[in-house]
């Protein structure tokens, strides 16, 4: 028996909008610790990892570990029928092959039940080791989204370089080139507007902008984004989900030959 009640239902709506462009079908894993997902995009170039901890739910009942295969587009279609202020409850009975999404309006005068068939998805679960990163950039998520969007109008790939000057985003294409440098800036009114750069050593990596633009679909989830870079590893783009967990995107770099 599974029953997860999320008062801030809009979070789940945003989480689905943040993943459905990258991943079509995925397994949601439910355990005592929380509701999670790990899935690669179809080309195995990117990976998304979601964690919503059980403490973040108003009510969290998960009698035994459960994995539910869902088509994220279909799930998103159903969640879009929930109001932004609705309470969303995810329910599944043992042994059934469907999941129910229940939407309750804030004053309980409207209750909706959407039932969706589950799928069998044999997804490989990857082991992601905790790593030391050569550079970690924390910046406003809207700023990062703007940079990725602007640069993708000039080129297909972006070189992200972190030096003591700051973090530089560079691209080149048929019409020309573009360089954007963001410097560390802690003297801001609100902490979420700060750009903070922790650099152990300079690092520079090249990534496909198409994937980074998919990742920025998570911008509504958090005011800030953290970008962790290391020359031997995929970049990690993380959006914290307030009081609940996170959505992390991993992207393999392009390798110069």
């Amino acid at each position: 028996m599974l029953e997860l009640r999320l008062v801030q239902g809009s979070l789940l709506k945003k989480v689905l909008d943040a993943m459905r462009e990258l991943v079509n079908d995925a397994n949601f894993d439910c355990s005592a610790t929380g509701f999670s997902l790990q899935a690669m995009d179809s080309s195995h170039v990117a990976l998304v990892a979601l964690l919503l901890r059980s403490e973040g739910f108003e009510h969290y009942r998960c009698d035994r570990n459960l994995s539910m295969g869902m088509n994220l587009n279909n799930m998103s279609k159903m969640l879009r029928c929930a109001g932004n202020d609705d309470i969303i409850t995810i329910k599944a009975d043992d042994g059934t092959d469907s999941v129910t999404f229940m939407f309750e309006s804030p004053n309980q005068d409207k209750i909706a039940d959407f039932e969706m068939k589950l799928m069998d998805i044999d997804s490989e679960h990857l082991g992601i080791p905790d790593a030391e990163y050569q550079a970690i950039v924390r910046m406003p998520s809207s700023e990062f989204a703007r940079i990725c969007k602007d640069l993708s109008s000039i080129g297909d790939t972006v070189v992200i370089s972190v030096t003591k000057e700051g973090v530089k985003f560079s691209t080149a294409g048929d019409i020309g080139t573009a360089n954007i440098v963001c410097r560390q800036n802690k003297t801001v009114d609100k902490p979420e507007e700060a750009t903070i750069i922790e650099m152990q050593e300079p690092v520079s990596l090249t990534f496909a902008l198409r994937y980074l633009n998919s990742f920025t679909k998570a911008t509504p989830l958090s005011d800030t984004v953290t970008i962790s870079l290391s020359s031997e590893l995929p970049v990690v783009v993380e959006y914290k989900i307030a009081e609940m967990g996170y959505i992390r995107y991993y992207l393999a770099p392009k390798i110069e030959e």
Binding site: H44, L47, H125, L126, Y250, A252, I255, E256, E257
Partner: peptide, 14 residues
Amino acid sequence: RSSQGRMLSYFGNS
């Protein structure tokens, strides 16, 4: 020329 890396060459199956 640059080639696109793949997840599986960084993270093995757990």
